[in-house]
Design a protein around this nucleic acid. Structure first.
Lengths: 202, 202
DNA sequence: ATCTTTTGTACGTTATCACGTACGAACGTA
DNA sequence: TACGTTCGTACGTGATAACGTACAAAAGAT
């Protein structure tokens, strides 16, 4: 386990983490506070505040929290500012769609890092299936899935058992077990699936 | 401007800011990583990780950001976090239903401990809303929500902004921010909502 | 104009962060 | 059982955060 650490040679922004300084300065000025005013409110010295604002120093979590408090924010609020809105809209005609053997998958949640629940709509033609009994699990260990039947009837196969689901039924199960859905009827079925990611890493 | 700093004598929580260490430890263990694994992923030494987890040291923002990155999170996500047998079927006529002022909520996922994603259907009558602008957030820190419009059109209000959603559109956002949906049309709208929970505090 | 106050930052000192090494305990394998 | 590996943490060292003091420049008051 060797960590090579070159001072100031590599990307300085990466070593300094989130760009806190500029935000502190902007907020302080917006509140019409001098460095000494904020030092008084936060209990962090004016020279230190100056260093932080100019990016000369990365404050500890403890000090940053006090700075945020002096700006009437929690630290997570301070860090969230300027992170972008995090409101992502997918229009009905913009869904990412996959097709395979009578099985259509429309993704509804955005492919963002840290996304915790994957939301999709599955349409199965008559006789189609989401997989078969010998397929390995496609979801990571610890995943849970909730599926809601939107249209028609569908069968869930899991743990060597068959569960019949009618229109409007929903089911929740461990998605890291081998499982698949089958449409054994005469018409299309539609299914809303939510897979909540697990935390375990092997 | 004097700051007295006594090692471990005064209130340790105030001097250490947010309780990051316990969260790092809980996440690391949930991901089945050793300190050395996380040191490898984050580029922060194992002894330092140990000190952080035990609250002996407050890391700088730069170091904390690297730790968060090794846990597949941004630092603000890490700071926001707080912390759910098998096949459970809910029949369409067995949904847990709540009603309030033109707003009907049907729960589709079971109320199990450890449940990671809460799935529900919301029906809003004309002029109804899921809440209003002054309601506090009802979801725990770190929650994300994906909502899918099943029928009609609906407006999402969040961050002082209004987002118009049409039939079939979906939206994903931080559910721990104050937000609500409104139906300003002439007929019922229906909405699938998936709220992925934050993680339990360690 | 002069004088005073305010402001941000340079500088030196001290405390603490962050590292690498090494240790003891726990665990796994033969 | 013995041996090897993995794990978390103690320890010492060097780097840097965080402070208080002082300075120069800008702003405000007379």
């Amino acid at each position: 386990m060797t960590t090579t650490r070159t001072r100031g040679a590599a990307a300085p922004e990466e070593t300094n983490g989130p760009e806190v300084g500029a935000r502190v300065k902007a907020l302080r000025e917006a509140m019409d506070l001098s460095l000494r005013d904020l030092a008084e409110r936060s209990g962090v010295s004016a020279p230190m505040l100056s260093q932080v604002e100019r990016g000369e120093t990365s404050p500890t979590i403890a000090v940053a929290s006090r700075i945020a408090s002096g700006l009437d924010l929690s630290l997570s609020q301070l860090l969230r500012l300027d992170e972008g809105r995090h409101v992502v809209i997918t229009r009905s005609n913009q869904r990412r769609t996959r097709r395979r053997r009578g099985h259509v998958v429309e993704e509804l949640s955005p492919p963002l890092p840290g996304q915790r629940a994957d939301v999709s709509i599955h349409t199965l033609g008559a006789g189609a299936a989401t997989g078969d009994a010998d397929d390995p699990p496609v979801h990571e260990p610890g995943s849970r899935e909730t599926a809601v039947v939107l249209e028609g009837a569908i069968d869930l196969f899991i743990d060597g058992e068959r569960h019949e689901l009618a229109d409007g039924d929903s089911v929740t199960f461990d998605a890291d077990l081998p499982h698949h859905f089958e449409n054994n009827g005469k018409s299309d079925t539609r299914l809303f699936a939510v897979v909540a990611a697990g935390l375990r890493r092997g």
